[in-house]
Design a binder for these strands. Structure first.
Lengths: 180, 180, 180, 180
DNA sequence: AATGAATGAGGTTTCATTCAT
DNA sequence: AATGAATGAAACCTCATTCAT
């Protein structure tokens, strides 16, 4: 049993059953290990949770963002959205996001990560808008405003339950709204 | 001590310290009452939490929405946003929102309320957009799309830490982007 | 079950089995009570131990000292010694003394009580010597020195295992050594 | 790491933090070694504690007692006292004494050592008194009683916090009290 | 309407110990 | 000679709950 395996399982509990259900007992049981064994790897539960934040934080930081800007506007928006969707739905990251979501109002560590994720998405959205405008695919509008509109709408969609079709319709509408 | 006082204090704990810190002991202590006394008012903790959801749900339902559509577009958007802001920041509702936020991925009751709040905001946003378009204050665009853009951006803003000035700048930009 | 009963039993464990054997589990078992019940009466184990020191301290303070100085020297010394013996052997106080003995080098609370007990005995010893000298029953010697000799010898005896006969022989020898 | 180093450190824990704080974990930590390593040197904790008693016992046995009886009474008493003081204050022995002190009422091994130490001091005290009397430096009094008085007073002093000056004053008073 | 007293279950953590390496 | 990894038992403590008063 490695630290990472423990963290992965801890994340799964938080995602599936809620932060308050993450107990050392439950964690040990799911890992087929005795409670005391966990204390060989982590000094305390608090310590483990801390590692959980760091773990997720690092994974997030490793999510590179590359978009092929030679495609048309709708395609670019779609790929951007898909990139973010990949973050929110990846089994690797979903548990971290669930932790953040549940704790962001309570725990500063969670809030900080939540914030930096939000800012990252916003920055990428802004960059895409600027590019689309500079390449004349979008009309010459306030790229900062478009960035916020696209980022926020995407964020809300990613946290809700939308069908892929509906997402596509939204992106297509968004693209045509601002296209040249 | 009334049921409402208990619920209010329970909400405060959830908002200030987190859902997992809502314990009968903590609640009793904050109310200067003995633990056993709480069982006179609520059959169980589960019961109390249930009442908490109902309590918040009812308060939400009582938030009427009236906008004076004779004003100009920016003013209408601003008042709409302020209405939502009132919900998110009111001391009465903030603890309920915190509960919803923390539990919406775990507890169906929370998810349902979260969803209906989201849909309510969305519906109001749509209605405003339709009205602005029908009154020729906004160009004849897809009201459903504009509704989503405004609602989502507002939602994200309301959950983050934006200054009033920044909010105003956003609304003004939004208005001028789609104005006739 | 009262606080005093708990403290009494806790003292018994310390006396009979040692300070390190005073556990909440053992205590509950001896009291025919569940562990959790003890936490209704004391916030924590530390808290309970604190109460134990106070409990013993108060009992000590209530030990009045009265000697009839009309008797002869040997009788007075003997009664004084018996008074101290009463402290060390009384079932009520013995457990407290055992706690003090075991912890006086480690725990300041214990050291303070130990010290005040030692000083009390010394002060009574001094007073007896002064009286015996002033009444011409003892020769005109350094009462302060005699006080220390009698107090120290008594203290050592009370902590060891001496027979009553041996104690009496000691006191009689001591009396005749300094008598007029 | 040798057995002796382990015992030394174990003694230090007992002296500084108390018998109940002597744990394998704490011991390993202070020795910058992993817990499991200690089991290479000692079969069990009980075993180690046993060794601790033996260790101390042997050290005690090696404390030779020699006094130059050609000196005057005060000097002889002083040297005797200093010899005992050396035992109680030596860094080598202090931790063993602390162990004995804490456990003498609980653990027979501790009680036996405590007793033999007490008897050794008493025997030495008696011998000194006999010698002083036989050499006419002390009056012809009950050497057995004087032995007890000096031994007990010294013992109490050595366990308390007396200044060197005060000790000297006591010895000088004691000497003049019984001198020819 | 409130509480004193108790409890079973389960929480986090520490303990001494083992064993393969 | 030492350690990484694990564990059963037991430590302290908190939880929601009950019930007679």
């Amino acid at each position: 049993m490695t630290k990472d395996e423990i963290l992965e399982e801890a994340g799964a509990i938080i995602r599936d059953e809620g932060y308050d259900m993450l107990t050392i007992s439950a964690l040990a049981q799911r890992l087929n290990v005795k409670k005391a064994s966990l204390y060989y790897h982590f000094e305390s539960k608090e310590n483990l949770i801390d590692a959980l934040y760091v773990h997720f934080s690092q994974k997030l930081a490793h999510m590179g963002f590359r978009v092929d800007f030679s495609k048309d506007a709708e395609e670019i928006l779609f790929r951007t959205y898909e990139h973010w969707r990949g973050i929110f739905l990846s089994p690797e990251l979903s548990s971290g996001l669930s932790l953040i979501e549940q704790r962001k109002e309570i725990d500063e560590r969670a809030y900080d990560i939540y914030n930096s994720l939000r800012l990252m998405i916003r920055a990428q959205s802004d960059a895409v808008m600027e590019n689309l405008i500079s390449r004349n695919r979008f009309r010459n509008l306030d790229s900062f405003l478009l960035g916020e509109l696209f980022a926020s709408s995407s964020l809300v969609r990613l946290q809700g339950e939308y069908t892929k079709e509906d997402d596509e319709k939204f992106i297509s509408s968004f693209a045509s709204l601002f296209s040249t």
